[in-house]
Computed example of a mutant assay.
Amino acid sequence: MAELPETGFLRLPQIIGNARAKPPIPALIPVSRSTWWAGVTTGRYPKPIKLGPRITAWRVQDIRELIERCA
Rank of each mutant, 00 (worst) to 15 (best):
K22D: 14
I15K: 12
R11T: 11
N18M: 09
K22P: 00
R69H: 11
W36F: 14
L12N: 09
R69D: 14
M1H: 07
P46S: 09
R64V: 13
E3M: 04
P13D: 12
A57P: 07
P24T: 02
P48C: 07
T35Q: 14
L4Y: 07
K47Q: 15
T35F: 14
E3S: 08
G39Q: 08
G52T: 07
Y45V: 05
P26L: 10
R59W: 09
Q61R: 12
D62N: 11
I15F: 10
T56Y: 10
E6S: 15
W36I: 08
G43F: 08
T35W: 07
G52A: 14
A19C: 01
C70L: 14
T35K: 14
G8V: 09
T35P: 06
A27I: 06
G8C: 12
P23G: 05
N18F: 07
G39D: 04
P24G: 04
L4I: 05
L12P: 08
E65C: 00
G39R: 13
E3D: 14
R33G: 01
V40N: 08
E3L: 05
A57W: 03
W36E: 05
P30L: 03
G43I: 10
E68N: 13
G8F: 12
P48Y: 12
A71D: 13
L66E: 09
T42A: 15
T7F: 08
V40R: 02
Q14N: 02
T42P: 01
P46I: 12
E65R: 03
G8T: 11
T56E: 09
E68I: 01
V60G: 07
P23V: 13
T35V: 15
F9R: 12
G52P: 13
R20P: 01
M1N: 04
I67H: 01
K22M: 11
C70K: 15
G43V: 08
R33V: 00
R20S: 06
P5W: 05
I29P: 01
K22Q: 12
I29Y: 08
L51H: 08
V31Q: 00
V60H: 03
